[in-house]
Simulated assay, not measured.
Amino acid sequence: MQDASAISADPKDLVAPEPVPAARQRLGQLVLIAGWAVLLGTLAVQVLSSAGLIYKGFDNWRPLVYAYLAWAVAFGWSQVLRRGNEGSKALFVLPAVLFIAAMVIFPLVFGLYIAFTDWNLSAFEGRKFNGLDNVRQMLADPFYWNALANMIWYTLSVLVEYAIAFGLALLLNSQIRGRKFFRVVFLLPLMLSPVAVSWMVGKSMMEIRFGPVANLARWLGWENPSFFTDPWLAKLSIMAMDAWTFIPLMMIMLLAGLQALPREVLEAARVDGASAWQSFWKVVFPLTLPVSITAIMIRIIFKLKIADIIINVTSGGPGGATDSVTSFIYREYRDRSNVGYGTLLAMVYLVLIVVALTLMLNIAGRWLRGYGQEEA
Rank of each mutant, 00 (worst) to 15 (best):
Y66Q: 07
F92C: 14
K89F: 07
Y68R: 04
K89Q: 13
G52T: 00
V47I: 08
I54M: 01
Y55K: 05
Y55M: 00
P95T: 14
L64G: 02
E86H: 14
Y55R: 00
D59F: 05
F92H: 04
A90W: 13
V47R: 03
A74L: 10
K89P: 12
W71L: 06
G52N: 00
L53N: 08
F75C: 00
V80R: 14
L64Y: 05
A74F: 11
L94H: 00
L98T: 04
G57R: 10
N60Y: 01
A70P: 06
A74M: 01
W61Q: 01
P63A: 13
A74Q: 05
N85P: 13
Y66H: 10
N85S: 14
L69S: 05
Q46G: 01
L69R: 04
N60S: 07
L91N: 15
G84W: 02
A96W: 15
Q46M: 03
R83P: 11
N60R: 06
E86F: 09
W71A: 13
V47W: 12
A72G: 02
S49H: 09
F99D: 14
Q46W: 02
V47A: 00
G87C: 11
Y68L: 04
Q79C: 10
L98C: 09
S49T: 01
K56C: 07
L91D: 15
S50I: 06
V80N: 12
V47H: 07
G84P: 04
N85Y: 14
N60A: 07
A96G: 15
L94K: 15
N85E: 15
A96H: 15
L64T: 01
Q46H: 07
A90M: 10
R82Q: 14
P63G: 07
V65E: 00
P63S: 09
W77T: 12
L48A: 04
L81Y: 11
L48Y: 04
N85R: 10
I54D: 00
N85L: 12
L91K: 13
L48V: 02
N85H: 15
G87M: 02
L98N: 10
A90N: 11
L48Q: 03
N60T: 07
G84S: 03
V93C: 15
Y66T: 03
S88G: 12
L91E: 15
F92V: 11
